[in-house]
Computed example of a mutant assay.
Amino acid sequence: MRTFPVIRVVTKILIPYILLFAFYVQFHGDFGPGGGFQAGVIFASALILYGLVFGLESVKRVAPPMVIEKLMALGVVVYGMTGVLTLALGGNFLDYAVLEHHFYPHIFPTGQHLGIFLVELGVGITVTSVMTMIFYSFAGRKRIV
């Protein structure tokens, strides 16, 4: 892509807006359509675009595969621990109503809002890392002749 400087410049301009939109979808997913899965795919698309334009090695320096592997597990842990927290507080698995009175409401969101936020955060982290790892796997394949 070194012979296409316009594509490189446009990509550098677009990526921050793509990431900003991904964060918007992530943090407003509990208020309307969207959430963790959509935000994860949007965030991963920014990394994939960067990799397509600047090369696989460049994107691997930005998001190393070892970090991506750890993020895959972290997202699942955040999701699962949200359910375990609701069990520990006396409710059912992912019963967000038990989160209503256990946290100081002026610092953290409580109840349904907190539960959905944590679950969507776990999903977003997982989807971003899995989509990025799928890109690494396919982009790193050698061509068989």
Rank of each mutant, 00 (worst) to 15 (best):
M133Q: 15
G124H: 03
L14Q: 05
M131V: 15
M131F: 11
L52P: 01
P33H: 12
G122M: 01
E100W: 04
H106G: 02
A22R: 04
G115L: 07
G51E: 13
I13C: 03
F4W: 06
R2Q: 07
M133D: 14
R2H: 10
F138Y: 10
F37R: 10
F138Q: 12
V41W: 04
V98D: 00
K70V: 14
T11F: 09
S129I: 03
A46K: 15
Y136G: 13
A139F: 08
I125Y: 01
V6C: 02
E57I: 03
Y104E: 15
I42H: 03
I42T: 11
N92P: 01
I18D: 08
K12G: 10
R2M: 13
Y136D: 09
I134F: 12
A97C: 01
Q26W: 14
L85G: 00
H102C: 10
E57P: 02
I125L: 07
F117P: 00
D30P: 01
R143N: 12
L56S: 09
G115E: 04
F43W: 09
V76Q: 04
Q26S: 08
I107S: 05
S58D: 08
E100I: 02
H106I: 11
F4G: 01
G35D: 09
Q26H: 14
T132G: 07
T128W: 06
I107K: 06
H113L: 08
I13K: 03
G51I: 07
M81R: 09
V130Y: 03
Y136W: 11
I7K: 12
G140S: 06
L52E: 13
R143T: 09
Y17K: 05
P64R: 11
V53Q: 05
A63Q: 04
L19N: 02
G90P: 00
L121E: 03
F138W: 12
G83T: 00
G51T: 03
Y79A: 13
P109C: 04
G122I: 01
V119M: 01
Y136L: 10
L74M: 11
F27N: 07
I125R: 01
Y50A: 12
I144D: 06
